[in-house]
């Protein structure tokens, strides 16, 4: 099971709900990397995660985790996966101690010492009902659970949504610590691109059930840029470079997909670095046009 290069591998995965379709999704997450799964609400992030975990069945396509097909192997493979959702999911009457009792009888590799260490580290009272926890505490509790059974892969669905910046940073630090181990990987879905910019190595963009961009985060950020020009100058820019255009009060912002080529072709125009958020916004807007 340890001989694999991609911790997650999706090939031509289709899931059709009628009113929403996850259309021919293919991407890989290299072992030991942090992959950000970016998309707005309703883009298909949660559906993809549910398919990966074999909670729902794909209509077609192949899903591999740790190099193994999830079909028929999912329960065993989930031993090595820690999952964090945007909502806690544990019963509100349960305390940390109760959750420990439950989980140690579910996960073969559950380490209660590690779990209580995390509770202490996160300042979570082990005897207090988790229903009385704040949103940040609930998220930390989920992370403590996800990290206490020697998981090799963390799958997280909007873990930082609705959290204040301080707690978000704390949580990102925990993730950074987790991936220090060579074979630990993280797949994190979020629409808060700022967080992903801080920790992701790879990014996958999704919108309307379709992937529109994927690859190494730094390469994507280096490749894309915002070209600033006047409205009448757009016509002179090569169409193959343009991803999207946004008109502003003082001119036009153009997202280009090859910053070096654009700089070479149009040395007189200003090209700024861009962010994942801008990339997402431009691609989504251009797809809808």
């Amino acid at each position: 099971m340890d001989i694999y290069t991609n911790v997650i591998e999706l090939n031509n995965v289709v899931k059709d709900y009628g009113d929403f379709k996850l259309d021919n999704i293919s991407f890989t997450v290299p072992r030991g990397s942090v992959c950000g799964f970016i998309g707005q609400n309703g883009a298909g992030k949660t559906t993809t995660i549910r398919l990966m975990l074999d909670v729902i069945k794909a209509d077609s396509g192949e899903i591999k985790l740790f190099g193994e097909d999830v079909k028929d192997n999912a329960p065993r493979l989930r031993e090595d996966i820690g999952v964090v959702y945007d909502e806690m999911g544990f019963h509100e009457f349960m305390s940390g101690k109760d959750i420990n009792i439950m989980m140690k009888h579910i996960y073969k590799n559950w380490d209660e010492e590690v779990f209580f260490d995390y509770l202490k580290k996160f300042s979570l009272p082990s005897k207090k009902k988790c229903g009385d926890f704040s949103r940040g505490m609930r998220m930390k509790l989920q992370i403590a659970v996800a990290l206490s059974h020697n998981a090799k892969l963390l799958v997280m669905d909007e873990p930082t949504a609705g959290l204040d910046p301080i707690v978000r940073n704390e949580i990102l630090d925990i993730f950074r610590e987790f991936v220090l181990e060579e074979d630990h990987s993280i797949f994190i879905s979020s629409h808060i691109t700022g967080d992903l910019e801080k920790i992701a190595d790879e990014v996958v963009f999704i919108d309307g059930g379709k992937l529109f961009l994927q690859g190494n985060k730094d390469e994507i950020l280096e490749r894309h840029g915002i070209l600033k020009c006047r409205k009448d100058e757009i016509g002179s820019i090569s169409k193959s470079l343009i991803v999207g255009v946004q008109e502003g009060a003082f001119g036009v912002d153009v997202l280009i997909n090859d910053m070096k080529a654009a700089a070479r072709l149009y040395p007189e125009l200003v090209i700024d670095r861009t962010s994942l958020e801008e990339i997402m916004l431009f691609y989504v807007a251009s797809a809808r046009r």
Partner: peptide, 21 residues
């Protein structure tokens, strides 16, 4: 009802247990 009210289903789906179990 307790599972439904707490939204436990996604958590259960991520556990290393089969549907049958």
């Amino acid at each position: 009802e307790a599972d439904k009210n707490s939204g436990f289903a996604p958590v259960a789906g991520a556990l290393p247990l089969s549907v049958k179990q």
